[in-house]
Design a protein around this nucleic acid. Sequence first.
RNA 1: CGGGGUGUAGCUCAGCUUGGCUAGAGCGCUACGUUCGGGACGUAGAGGCCGCAGGUUCAAAUCCUGUCACCCCGACCA
Length: 587
Amino acid sequence: MIFFTTPVSRFDMRWSQSFIPTMKEVPAEAEVPSHQLMLRAGLIRQLMAGAYTYLPLGYRIVRKVSEIVRQEMDRAGAIELFMPALQPIDIFERTGRREAFGNVLFNFEVKRGDRRLHLALGPTHEEVITDLMAKHISSYRQLPITLYQIQTKFRNEERPRFGVLRTSEFLMKDAYSFGTSIEQLNAAYDSMYQAYCRIFERCGLKYLPVEAESGPIGGDASHEFMVPADNGEDFVVHCPGCGYAANQERADTGRQSAVLQPVAGSSAPVRVATPNAGSIEQVSRLLKTDATSFIKTLIYVADGKPVAVLLRGDHTANEGKIRRAAKATVVELADEATILKVTGAPVGFAGPIGIKCDCLIDHDVAKISSAITGANEKDAHLTGVIPGTHFAVQGTFDLRNAESKDPCPKCSGTLEIVHGIEVGHVFKLGTKYSVSMDARFVDAQEQSHPIIMGCYGIGVTRVVASIVETCHDENGIIWPLAVAPYSVEVIPLNVTDAEVMKISNQIYNDLSAVGIDVLMDDRDQRPGFKFKDADLIGIPLRITIGGKGLAEGIAEIKWRTEPDARKVPLADAVGYVKDLIAEKMMG
RNA sequence: CGGGGUGUAGCUCAGCUUGGCUAGAGCGCUACGUUCGGGACGUAGAGGCCGCAGGUUCAAAUCCUGUCACCCCGACCA
């Protein structure tokens, strides 16, 4: 048997025998396209906020995507297993993640005999798998190994939303690599990265691998796979020129450091009274100026030492960049007492002139020719402040979040910001969990070391929603062939016409026999009704059998994406469709 | 967790401001008939604790209080 598309166990289905409750009208609770269409096309139904039933058609798509994920994981050398969703709370205490997860971790007590068990529902499985490996890996000879599962994850989202895009219960593929060295970790990571690219490509998704905040390991230790979409919750900084992409926390800008010399003969800053106006918004209204001519002075504490961070008034601080510029391990916003101490004023009136701490200056601050700053005095600001003249600028840093129109750090291009849906994440974990779970191996010299780990996730159900979000038109979903619940939909226009049904059944059976997923809309409905439903559920190929075509001896075959059908002699129809599908799957 | 919105038939919604007959429409559903190539039409039906609880009143879908659920914005998201 030849599988032209991702196989699931059953190829054929008659609509009248299935359960595909489509809706003409848009349910009031659905806002984003994927949510609306998945409800209307009869793929999902909501049980409660953040929990959905996958109806037969929807579940077929989940299975198709899962199968692609499984094939590519296997191809990349990962081994499938299946772990419990139910987990003892203790393992989260061992890794300190009970607190880290906080309320996101579903956890509860149950009675068992006269004991009380404290359980959690797995939000992910680092603890479980590391515990497993700790018990069974003892030698470097057993490594490297990568294991994965496809399993339901539970996270008590504070606010589930956007239908299936953000739920409390969702299907996820999670893989974990175990190795003896950074080299083995890098090899596993690269192999997963490549597998992810193949998976998203096969799913028909446009995606961007994005550099993500990588924590203590640094470097290229983490990538998120983002699907650009208007309703995405994440911001991706992207350079169309060279392909550079990073999430907003991580993205660098290509701006240059500046050293400014004092301007001779310039007049001194002017003090203006700004009673009760401590925010940039208030002062800019008072002085009738734009936030871009302000210097925002934020007081941080870096490893216990106060430091002023200077940004242009309309920009937002990036604490990761500030931490690196300050060469500190911990930075946090200063409290009111510290601010009073270094500025001599309450919150809202800090400025670089006369401040009693070091200043870190963002690149863009040096470009302001005449700025407004706090006066380090209650209810007062300074205007006409010239950077480099009224306060020293001995070099500037990248301290803020990247913005649209910033220069690209990798080429001469310009950055843009796009919304994205995070569908996958690869992460070099290092030894965080192996140390806390005591998962160790001995090397050839009988030295014991913690195992070096990586973790790799794909939100399977989120992939499904992302496909709908990006593959639809005003009439409904347009499934890419590889993930379509059925490849072909046969529509007999008149089910009471014996000849129409005979031909339709024959084509349906023949397609099924060669391993093509085929759905036949055998409902006794008018043609227009069936066409509308066909467009809604988005089966890639449509074969229409009706009186008109039969008179000419032809079937009408049409891609969901094309406006007009091709007329194919009845005898050739099955072969023609087979070729179309084979060609599409190759291309 | 802060802010906003909505709960009336399977779905979309009207009615609520200004309390009053038997609570409505369209779609969907059932039966029959006419239709039949892009969500047909007619006739006759079925279907409602007006989210739930309390209160005000002669009288509550409608006013008041509480509560629950859902949606949106924000905060949060290893």
